[in-house]
Every structure is written in C-alpha cells, then in structure tokens.
Design a binder for these strands. Structure first.
Lengths: 116, 116
DNA sequence: GTCGCCCTTAGAGTGCGCTCGAAGTCAAAC
DNA sequence: GTTTGACTTCGAGCGCACTCTAAGGGCGAC
C-alpha cells in the first residue's frame, strides 16, 4: 500500500512515516518499481505498536532501542521484555498520578460551583 | 522566602520560576529590599495548582489564559470554571487511553513470557 | 508530449517548554 | 576592602518530535 494509505491507516503523517524510517524506527519498508514505499500489513502492525508506545510516552530514543533489539534477533527477547515491563510500570505510575490530579481538579471545580 | 526555597518546595527550578513570572503565569511576586524575589505561602499554593495543571498536560498558553482570567476578577469565574471542566474531560480521556494502552502492553508482555 | 500530482532524498525549520549565559548588583564573610 | 556567592534582567540556546522545503523523478490523464 502507498505511503498515503499507510498514513491514513496508522494515523501518522507521510512525513512522520518517512522520518521514522530514516531514524531506524521502521526497518526496510518495501519499494515498488518506481522506488515508492510499499507498506504491507506487517508494517501496519508494527506502526500500531509503535504508536501505542509513543502515546504512552515512550521516547523516540527508547523506541529506536527496542526496534534495534528486535532486529538483532531472538536472543534479545529478554531485554525487550524487560524494557516493556519497565515501561509498563511508568505508564501505571502515570495513570495513578493523573487519577490523583483528576480528583484535585474535581475538587477545584466543585469549589467554583459552590461559589457561583 | 527566597527563590531557592520556593524552588525546593514547589519542585520547579529557580530558572523556571523566573520564566513563569516573565510570561505572566505568576503575577507580582514580592521583592525584598535588595530587589530579590520574596515568595509567600499564597504564591506556593498557586505554584502547586499550576504544577497540577502542567502535569495533567495543560499547555503553558492555556495556563497563562487562566492566570489572566483570575487577575481580571470575579466576573471571570464562570469562564475559569468552564476551562477547568473542559480540561477535566481531557484528563479523564487521557486516563482512559492510557488504561487501554496499558492492557495492550500487558498483553504484549504476556506473549513474551509465554514465548520464553 | 505536457500537465498535474504524488513520490523520492537530505537537510533545514518549527513549536514547545524550559534552561542557560552574560553582565551587573548586593550583602555577608573574612 | 575584597572575595564569594546568590540574586537580578533579558536574550540566546537546547532537546524533542516532528514538519516542511527544495530539487528532482515517474506516471496516468488528456
């Protein structure tokens, strides 16, 4: 599929897809006869995973590291798993923090309602 | 209290405190005889509130807008309340998104565990 | 065949939120 | 009295994650 189609389906811009490939986040997307990128379903799945990592706040640098480990082969599975586990804890902590801040916000809003 | 003490208690750097004041996020912090900033408990409370807004992802621009409304007086209370309510919804949505992504992450980690 | 459009690469530019540096002031320590 | 060190202002610089531009290539529609 074309870069536009991949952009539409992944929710990333074509610019961002090229950028991700340039920095090594996406490896060896196929090219068609004209040298244009030709994404397949596996690429889409990987993009989807990357998007989840991004949206949970993983840095581009860490995502690159994960991608590199993946390319290095099965013997890095343990390290990849540990990366995800560490990241998981960060996300859980972030949810806890946001949940607390949400209560504080609710409290503040209540005071506005009572004052009004 | 000195800027260092305010930095320590607020968790922001002295640089950031000056920056916040410059852009209008913090209004008229008192000065002592030497022209040095002299923070009081009310300033600390405001910083604490700002920090909550920041950590929940409100942009500096929106925080400035809130600060401006606050300075404008009591007749802006409704608009301030609406700002907070809109922000509250964003935070709640973010928590929901993170919670979903956390499950996806957990699933992925489980597949690593089973493969290992 | 040429117009229009989308593609390619490599590098420059942008926006956000700080973060730092330079130049100067002031007060306490020695 | 001079050194030390924290403070002041204000503008420049930085890191991140894109986002865009320039210059050129390829292909289908007319």
């Amino acid at each position: 599929m074309t870069i536009q189609e991949a952009a539409r389906r992944s929710g990333l811009s074509a610019h961002t897809l090229r950028y991700y490939e340039r920095i090594g986040l996406i490896h060896s997307v196929g090219r068609n006869g004209s040298g244009h990128r030709d994404y397949d379903e596996q690429d889409l799945g990987w993009l989807d995973f990357l998007t989840k990592l991004r949206s949970t706040g993983m840095s581009i640098a860490d995502m690159c590291r994960y991608a590199q480990l993946l390319r290095a082969g099965a013997h890095t599975a343990g390290e990849r798993r540990r990366m995800l586990e560490r990241h998981r804890e960060k996300v859980a902590a972030r949810i806890a923090e946001l949940t607390q801040d949400l209560s504080a916000l609710d409290y503040k809003i209540r005071t506005y309602r009572e004052t009004a």
